[in-house]
Each structure stands twice: as C-alpha cells, then as structure tokens.
Design a protein around this nucleic acid. Structure first.
Lengths: 346, 346
DNA sequence: CTGAAAGCGCTAACAA
DNA sequence: TTGTTAGCGCTTTCAG
C-alpha cells in the first residue's frame, strides 16, 4: 500500500480529466455512459476513496456536526446522543462528539475545537455559561441547544422536554394519593430550577403548604446527592413522599431509604425525574417522569439541518414528558391502604 | 459577521507574510518578539480561528479519530466511549462517533465514511464481519479493536477484558456456594462465545456435569433475551443458580424471576456479566462481573495514538475483570443457611 | 528572521 | 460532453 489514490490518479488511469471524475463520482453534470464506466472502473481498481478534506475545503461544508454533552455515560445524554446520531445519519452527516463534564472552561475549549474543525453546526446540552456559545454564534456556526439552554441566548433555537408538565403530573399524582408532606430533592444546577419552581407552584395550587425544610439541593455529584438524600430522609420522618429532580438524586433516595430500612411505598413514596433503565429493575419499580431524550436529540438535529434559514426566530420546541406510574408510590401511612402496615420509626 | 477571517487576512492586517502568521500560531520556527506580537494582535482583533481543513489537507493528519460502537445507549459502550474521549483529549484529538447497531452493512458504511474523512485512526467494537475492517486496513487507516475482535484479523491490535477470568470467578463462586445445577443464559453473538466455553470448562474443572438443557442462547435483542430467560426459569425449577452472559440477559432474568415470584437468592441465585449501574440498585443488588469498559476505551485509544510504529505485532492487551459480590447469590435451598434465610437478605 | 510560492485533493466555472 | 484552470486555507521548503 503506497499512497492513497487521488482524483488525479483516477483521471489518468481512466484517460479523462479530473473534472470528469468529479462529475461521475458526485453524480453532477452530464457524462457519457462510456466514460462513466471507464471512470468507475478506474476508481474501483485503484480503490479510490475521495477525500473529504479536499471537498470540504472547496465547498466550505464538512458534512459533520458537533455534539457537546455533559457526560456520555449518563443514560439521558446517551439517549439524546443516539437520537442525534439517528437523525444525522438520515442527512448523511457525521457527528463529532465531546463531553464537557459541566465544566464551562472545558466546554469553551471544545467549542473552540469544533469551530476550528469547521463543523456545519453544533448541538449542545450546554453547561450553563453563555460565553462559549456566544463565541460560536459569532464565529458563524449554527447552534441548537437541547434539553437545556443558557439564559441570555434567546436567539439560539432550542429543543426541550416539558419538565414543568412532568413535575406537575408527578406532584399531582402524589398529592392525589393523599400525601401532604412531600419532599423535594433538587440540585444547585440551573436545569432543576424549573422543576423546583413547578414543584412549589403545584403544591400551592393544591392548597398545600411549601415546607422549606423539605426542599434540599445537592451539588450535581454523586456524593453530594447521597448526602442530601440521607439528610432529608433521616431528619424528616414525617415526610411521606419525595420527588427526586434527577436520576442521580433518585438513586440516592432509593439507596438511603434501603439503608434506613424504609419500606417503599409503605413508609415512603419515591418518584423521580428521568426514566432511566434501572427505574424498572428497582424493587419496587420506580415511578418516574419519562423525558424523551432520544426524540430531543433527533429533533435538535433536525432543527439544525432542515432548512437552516427558518431555523432562528422561533420559540423553543417543547416535547411532552410523561409520568410513568410504577410501584414506588402509594397512599401515605395512616390513610386507607397505608394504615394497614405497621408504622416504622426511623 | 461577513466571512470568517483567513490566514491571509491576519497577514495583511499584521503587515507580514502568511508564513510568518503560520509560524507564530503554530509556534514553529523563529519569530522576532515584535512581529509575533503584531500577529497575535491581528489574529485577536479578527477573531481568527485557523481552519483545520487547510491544515489537514496540507499535513495529511486530521487530528480526529473514529469510534465505532454497537450502541451508544448501552452502558458498557458508553463507558468505553467515555474512556476513548478521555484519552483522545489528552492527545488533543477529536472523536467522530457512530453506532453500527450490530449491522455489518451499516458498519461497513460507517468505516467508509470514516476513511473518506481521513481520520487518523479508528477504534471499534466491531460487529463481527471482518470485511469492513480489512478494507479500512487496506486503506491505510490504523485500526484498534476494543472489547471484541473479529476472527481473521490477528494483525489488528486489540484491547479486551478478561472475560474468561471473570466468568470463571463467577462460576467458582456459585459452585463454592454449593450450587450443582447452574444455568447459563448466553447469546448467539460471537462475543459471549468465550463466556460460554469458560462456563463449561469451569464446571468441568469442578467436577460438575454440564447440562445442555440448562444452557440457552438468545438472539441479542431484548425480546429474545426475555423469552430465553422465561423459558429457562420456567422449565427448570430444579436449577438453583443462573449466570447471565450479558446485562440484557441479566435484566431479563431478574424480571422473569420477579414475575415468577422467585425469591432471590433463596429460590434462585443470579449473577451476570457487566456491572451496569442498575446492578446496585436492584433488590437484592446483583452480583456481577465488572469489566473495565472505561479503561478498555482509554487503552485502545492509547494504543492507537501512542507510538504508532510499535502498535502492531503484539498480542491483545487483556484487562482484568472483577467479580463484584452483592446480595443476589446464596447457598441453594436445601443447604445449611439456604432454606432458613429470610427472603430479603442483602 | 521573513516572504514568496508550491502544492495538499477537490469542485466549479469557463472553454472548447 | 469533456478538459483546463483557479482557487478553498494552510504548511513548508527555499531564497533573501
């Protein structure tokens, strides 16, 4: 294997000009069947693979787009990425992936590299700081936000899940079951902000008092989630239900409850946002707000690629989130169906 | 925002030649401090971002590598991808990702596109067919296999988990607990082949008979996994333990056991290969063979990028797999401690 | 220390 | 219908 064949090699071998080879291979322009065959044959014999580099340099389109997520390992992000991949494929686009790990500096660096690579566009689940994204937009790279959007960039098209509706459904479900003292496990990160607000608002709508001591916020890391859950569950034995605003928080709640020997849902009902795979495997299976990660990714990609002209100037696309009811929630102890079980202390 | 600035614009603005700009920005060659400053200033004022396209065309290196996995949504693949991303970052390489969904045709198509993009190398969890990979190798693209490798391409460097050791540990653990009738849930896909072989071999080593009726193979899809698990658990009530060769199969086993009201581990011990997140959330938590997906990805990337010369001609890198013992396995019913145990041990 | 110029592989006018 | 040619933006000799 010497050097990869170039369009020139093919042209020479087929006894035609490079333009003809280009025409044949890209299917543009008129070519006589005879020459077409000769070119095709030459290309095949040389195992010619056109170089995207040359083409991109000329056409100013790379046929690849950037995808920036916080963490590929997170099930929601993975679903979202899968959606992007699906859609990109239908458009024949490649996907350059990177993880920013909620670090604005790292995110800025990634965006920088994506711009250097001259991607045709970027789909991002942004870490929050808008600086990096302003830069991308200024650089002329189309950007679409997915799942969340930094404040201050309303002109960037966005595809979101209807978190508010999901949380509202969950809280109403819990309240409908008879719960009056419902806890909330949130984070200090911006994206659980609307979840908390909606939690408060829904409680208020139902005439339930919002008890600040039942609302706790963890930093978005495993340890912190666990600590927050432990603190809440241990210090508030009168709490009969809890809503976790993320699957990490949900996981923490389940584990802490188990450690505390709380029976679910008899002693404590648990629901969470994000219907990750383990929700179903849990015992009892966890009630969760299913947010359509895959569809969000797919749509974000579609918004980016489908007629870029109209892309801007529209309000966010909001996709429905659905409450998936499983076995982790029940009436609070003391209510019909709940009282039958012995009340456990601690 | 008119047109993105090019190196020419910067040169003109700084009053120097393009070569000087290139030298300054790439840090190569000697430049007087004065001109360096002028160039830097001009670049900053113009918000100049060098184009990777021009550079790549010239240098014949794109600074990006391809990553091909079966499915980004699979927790193991996601971990592996995260490892690749980590390592690629330390080398300043970008990662072009795609999912082949175990479809050889699709995989071939992906490889084709990667070659067109002139990636510097490809890391793949291959679907099995070697044709596509031969083509890549012939095209002169360095390839490294991760987690599995198609037969017939021994010259391609490979990074694997020590599945055999992991399975052996699991079977010995089960046998040590007193189980004599251990079932095996495998797949028709090649990668669970060594797991099955090791399962048989270990049984034999311990002087236990291999009962063919306790070995079942599913196609690598959710439904099939479920059907296989249901078939095995329902028809073999005398089986006291089962080893699932993949997490999908493990999931199926857990769900079916629950449906059948089997107590775990009192009625049935379950262990599986791949320590996915839900293993810990399960009740009881599942004993599993933890295969280091992240490290596999990291190492595969390292092998690809770190001194490419010595890359070939070495045997596979094999990373240890560890048996993580949790609560899903216990002595079989009928043995001391087996029958007496309460259903919900941890 | 710096600039001019030759491509890298391809596409798209423009000619023929 | 086909060939020639001028770049796309960059790096890299090679002179100066």
């Amino acid at each position: 294997m010497s050097r990869a064949a170039t369009i020139k090699d093919v042209a020479r071998r087929a006894g035609v000009g490079v333009a003809t080879v280009s025409r044949v291979l890209s299917g543009s322009g008129p070519v006589s069947p005879a020459t077409r065959d000769r070119v095709l044959a030459a290309a095949r014999e040389l195992e010619y693979r056109p170089s995207a580099l040359g083409r991109s340099l000329k056409t100013q389109r790379t046929g690849t787009l950037g995808l920036v997520v916080p963490d590929v390992t997170d099930p929601f992000c993975a679903e979202l990425a899968a959606g992007v991949l699906d859609c990109a494929r239908t458009f024949g686009e490649n996907v350059l992936l990177d993880a920013a790990h909620d670090d604005p500096g790292r995110e800025a660096e990634i965006v920088d590299r994506l711009v250097e690579q001259r991607v045709d566009g970027i789909i991002a689940v942004p870490a929050g700081e808008e600086a990096a994204w302003r830069a991308a937009v200024r650089a002329g790279v189309p950007v679409v936000f997915a799942d969340r959007a930094p404040a201050g960039l309303p002109e960037v098209p966005t595809v979101l899940a209807d978190d508010a509706a999901g949380v509202r459904a969950a809280v109403e479900y819990l309240a409908g079951l008879g719960h009056r003292r419902i806890g909330f496990l949130g984070t200090t990160a911006a994206d659980t902000g609307v979840r908390e607000e909606t939690f408060r608002a829904t409680l208020a709508e139902r005439g339930l008092a919002v008890r600040e001591e039942l609302l706790v916020r963890a930093r978005p890391h495993r340890d912190s989630a666990f600590a927050a859950a432990a603190g809440l569950l241990q210090s508030r034995p009168d709490m009969t239900a809890v809503l976790a605003a993320t699957h990490l928080l949900g996981e923490a709640a389940v584990l802490v409850a188990r450690e505390l020997d709380l029976r679910i849902p008899a002693d404590l009902s648990i629901a969470m946002v994000d219907d990750v795979p383990w929700a179903e495997l849990c015992d009892p299976p966890l009630t969760a707000v299913a947010r359509p990660g895959r569809r969000i990714g797919y749509q974000a990609c579609e918004v980016l690629l489908r007629d870029p002209a109209r892309r801007d100037r529209s309000r966010p696309v909001v996709l429905a989130a659905e409450l998936v009811i499983r076995g982790s929630c029940g009436p609070p102890a003391g209510l019909p169906g709940g009282a039958a079980r012995p009340a456990r202390t601690r």
